[in-house]
Design a protein around this nucleic acid. Structure first.
Lengths: 224, 224
DNA sequence: TATCCTATTTAGGAAAACCTAAATAATTAT
DNA sequence: ATAATTATTTAGGTTTTCCTAAATAGGATA
């Protein structure tokens, strides 16, 4: 029962959670890129996490890593902190959605369970953060999300933006200018078969924008 | 220009600030007690802080340590964070005054200047925290505080509670029960010359309480 | 002043989380 | 299938902040 989840360990678990959502194990390199450290550091940490009791990850040399049940629980706890904090920074302190990520990134490791409960209650137990990402409940169950990348929507179909990739501020500011926000209705007017650039109507009868894969791959929608 | 103020360094600076408020340098032992580490660890850290450029402390072997101007500035910045956070946890999240210390203790190291400004503005640039401690302004100037320990007040005199020592929760809960809170009027009815126990009227025409030095030494008042 | 006790410092180490360089394994191309 | 390339691991360091045990300095006492 080591039970010491350092900030760094929490970051690793969160990153592994994200990279394994598609079901496949996360590679050393992908983790290194995500966490901004050298691959050698990943190997070391991952070996430690696999050796800890209870083990937080399952690891096979050269074959990547995935979370155990205990690791997943710990990851969801951090993700809950992060997304609640983002929601609350926007709702209570007037942050814009492109400013909250880095602040939440630091706060998530230090807030108490008491703090978590207080902001969750103050916000009315929200299930989505400002980027539309689902927030795990107090029971750590992740709300279901059926959204697919906008790029996977066929020409002629309509959809609603559900969530967007929140990693970088520049990207979020562009979405804001485009009015491509969670909740917005979109209609795919045309898809270029060559470079997969999309012509999309944004809003009920809003403007038409031409969007490349850098955007359509990171905006997730529900069709219908 | 090292300019890396780790959490630990910030804690040291804050502790040194507190222990040198009376003008005398802080001893290795006093710091060790305050920070909950061994005296040997203090020596090591203090040597490092004195050697850093710019030096954060002034240090003479066996004669204690005090802050340089740069060290004081850094300490005040952390104290501002801490006290703003305490004020804001009470005002916005419904914490009681005995719950805020440990939460603020962790948050103070990770909030951004932006966060600091936002809560200060939301609170209307407060100058006192929930324990009555002065909050350094945005310019890092500490509001003046003329308060003296209640134990120094003569029999027959009246005073107003200005601030209380906020270190331990048990103590704060007792003060709450006694209604001995910042802003409360008190009148010293009688002082036992032997053990210095005081008979004090708490509130305009409130109850009389008998208080030992464990309390009267940690409650600060302004007479008149 | 010589001794004793306490405060402080020195010396040597440990744990965490990173790094670089070199070695090895896996995958891809020829 | 072999060679070339890429991914991953191992080995050996570094930094930060703490520790314990042993040495020394300062101040108090007799």
């Amino acid at each position: 029962m080591s039970e010491v989840l350092t900030d760094s360990i929490q970051d690793y678990l969160k990153a592994i959670f994200d990279l394994t959502e598609n079901g496949t194990p996360a590679s050393t390199n992908a983790l290194a890129r995500r966490l901004g450290v050298e691959p050698a550091s990943i190997t070391g940490m991952v070996q430690k996490l696999a050796a800890s009791r209870p083990a937080l990850v399952e690891y096979r040399k050269h074959h990547g890593v995935k979370l155990t049940a205990a690791g997943k629980r710990a990851a969801l706890e951090v993700i809950r902190h992060h997304r609640l904090l983002e929601t609350w920074l926007v709702a209570s302190l007037g942050y814009s959605w492109d400013q909250v990520h880095s602040e939440a990134e630091r706060l998530e490791h230090v807030i108490s369970e008491d703090f978590e409960e207080r902001i969750a209650a103050a916000l009315g137990e929200p299930t989505r953060d400002p980027h539309g990402e689902p927030i795990p409940g107090p029971d750590l169950v992740m709300p279901s999300d059926q959204s697919i990348p906008l790029e996977a929507v066929q020409a002629g179909k309509k959809a609603t933006v559900r969530r967007v990739d929140a990693q970088d501020r520049e990207f979020l500011r562009r979405l804001e200018l485009l009015r491509l926000l969670p909740g917005t209705r979109v209609a795919v007017v045309e898809v270029s078969p060559v470079d997969h650039v999309m012509k999309v109507r944004i809003g009920a009868r809003g403007t038409i924008a031409v969007l490349g894969p850098a955007i359509t791959g990171r905006v997730f929608v529900e069709t219908g």
